[in-house]
Design a protein around this nucleic acid. Structure first.
Lengths: 137, 137
DNA sequence: CTATTTTTGCAATACTGTTGCAAGTATTTG
DNA sequence: CAAATACTTGCAACAGTATTGCAAAAATAG
């Protein structure tokens, strides 16, 4: 409960109902959340615009990070390993369960380096693995 | 030119203007294409719906594959290494240039295997690397 | 060339995301 | 603690993106 306040303060964000609620959702949820999930789970207590802006703010502050998908949706997840200043978000692997459709951050699995062809300079890498998760096994 | 017909026949698809044109676009383009690119480059000769349906059909047949991104757009690219039946699409690395914004399939760079925590079974892996490409170096 | 199957385009609809601005809420400071 | 300031929210309007049903048109099979 206090965790939420700490995070907001630490990032010099005003403490508002919306931000508290949305942060709590992320903390409570195991996996990643899409914008639509959040709207549903807050029972439309907040304006769509507010949710968009809150997510954007959280991404900028490095509180959450975005996960790439192939289905035209963007997923968001908490940065657990207290990443600083919005850097280093993408160095863990994301797992999407094809059974329960949950997206899980494998915080302990780092994205391996790959050898790129001559002339390509890597800056950031993202990796998404699809398969069957722990709960569905 | 004939390549296009071959591909369509091989997948038992009717040969139509739209499909031919869109396939030609993919063959001509080095990188990946978004739905919007295709609409622009066909000068709106085809209905938006037709483009959507064509892309969907091509994905189902395994002619093209989707590339995950974090900005709510889906990119499509040709499967070069004649993947069969829609399998094995995601085993090469995709590169997005942060300078020119092109997305390039690195067909020769395969996605490395990662060790997942106990209980997770991988089926498919996708990897996207962001950085500076050959042309922008 | 005709019959059948497949694909297209239109219309309607729904979802997703963004911006400006006024009103409201949170924080700062004296 | 109250007033001043700064920040956040909600509304309205808008733009872009994606989906579905159905009738017309085109492609393929016989």
């Amino acid at each position: 409960m206090n965790e939420v306040l700490q995070i907001l303060k630490k990032n010099s964000l005003s403490v508002t109902e919306g931000r508290k609620k949305i942060l709590e959702l992320f903390i409570a949820s195991e996996g990643a959340l899409a914008h639509a999930d959040i709207e549903k789970q807050t029972s439309n207590n907040f304006d769509r615009v507010t949710v968009y802006r809150t997510l954007q703010t959280f991404v900028e502050k490095g509180i959450i990070h975005q996960i790439p998908t192939t289905d035209n949706s963007v997923l968001y997840a908490l940065c657990r390993h207290n990443c600083e200043q919005g850097h280093h978000h993408d160095n863990h692997v994301h797992f999407i369960c094809s059974n329960c459709d949950k997206t899980i951050c494998l915080d302990d699995v780092t994205v391996p380096q790959v050898k790129l062809p001559e002339g390509f300079t890597p800056l950031q890498s993202a990796m998404v693995v699809t398969g069957i998760c722990l709960d569905c096994a």
